[in-house]
Amino acid sequence: MDKRNAAGGLMQKSKVLLLAAGITAGSLMAWNAFGGQPLNKPAFAAGTENAVMNTVAVTGTGKVSVAPDIAYVSAGVSVTAKTAKEAQAGAAKKYDAVRKALTGTFGVAEKDLKTTNYSVQPQYRYTDKEGQVLTGYTAVQDIQISYRNIDKTGDLVDGLAAAGANRINNISFGTEKGDAYTQQALQKAVEAAKVKAMTLAQASGRTLGEVVSISENGAQVVQPVIERAQMKMAAASDSSANTVVDAGEVDVTSDITVLFSLK
């Protein structure tokens, strides 16, 4: 009986030793399969880290300054009367005269005229004795004019005033060739990014490699604007002089981010 128990114990110990040996062999095979790295760490992690370390990311800005080819004039009429109906009728009459001058005298197409504001507001007077007293109504109608004869923008402003427009809000200048100018700005942005990356590579004792990725951060068209206050100051200096409007330049900018490899 003791001999059988002893033999059974030896057999159990042998099975445990064989199982342990099998687990150890499997672990070694898995270790070798993953290049000697721990099983819970991706095999490609080291390569990815090296790839990231061997790059440089820079931003580049390109700018193109061009003469504007279109003016946007915001003007309007304002009429105050005792009743809202009278104010509306007066504004409508003035507005119609302004539109006829634009389409007739200045040859502005209907598609280049856009109503941007229309309002009728009550007007009040306040006194200590009577408090707030209704004095009438003011009707306002504003229009935006797209005008391509840039050199005649000052004449257009004078013509609007002569036709009955008593609101000249502002004038801005832009370009209708924004896409073409944006492409030029993008090319300059890429060149600027490359110069910056080369400087960084040389400073760190490396050589600039190929472009890994490139992304556009956005483009912007900066339009010069002449405000109403500026035009009033010019008119006050000499009431008999014609309005002179300086268009200046339109700036088109593009921003990009470029990732270069390093050698």
Score class of each variant (00 low, 15 high):
91 A>V: 10
87 A>I: 03
118 Y>N: 07
131 G>R: 14
163 A>G: 08
121 Q>G: 07
171 I>D: 05
122 P>Q: 04
104 G>K: 14
97 A>N: 13
155 D>P: 00
228 R>H: 15
44 F>S: 14
199 T>A: 06
94 K>Q: 15
114 K>A: 07
201 A>S: 04
184 Q>L: 10
229 A>G: 02
56 V>S: 06
262 L>G: 00
7 A>Q: 08
49 E>D: 13
149 N>Q: 09
28 L>S: 07
130 E>H: 02
108 V>P: 00
104 G>T: 08
259 L>C: 01
186 L>K: 01
256 I>N: 04
189 A>D: 08
92 A>Q: 05
36 G>L: 04
15 K>A: 11
107 G>W: 07
223 Q>R: 06
91 A>Q: 10
30 A>T: 06
206 R>G: 08
147 Y>E: 12
256 I>M: 08
33 A>D: 13
101 A>I: 05
104 G>M: 11
6 A>V: 04
107 G>R: 04
195 V>W: 05
217 N>M: 10
239 S>P: 06
112 D>Y: 07
224 P>I: 11
78 S>C: 10
22 G>I: 06
106 F>D: 09
43 A>T: 11
63 K>W: 10
184 Q>S: 08
28 L>C: 08
233 M>P: 01
58 V>Y: 01
260 F>C: 02
88 Q>D: 06
202 Q>G: 04
225 V>H: 02
216 E>S: 04
252 V>F: 09
228 R>K: 12
180 A>R: 07
37 Q>T: 07
132 Q>P: 01
177 K>H: 13
259 L>K: 01
136 G>A: 11
92 A>I: 00
204 S>N: 12
217 N>T: 02
257 T>C: 00
245 V>H: 05
123 Q>M: 15
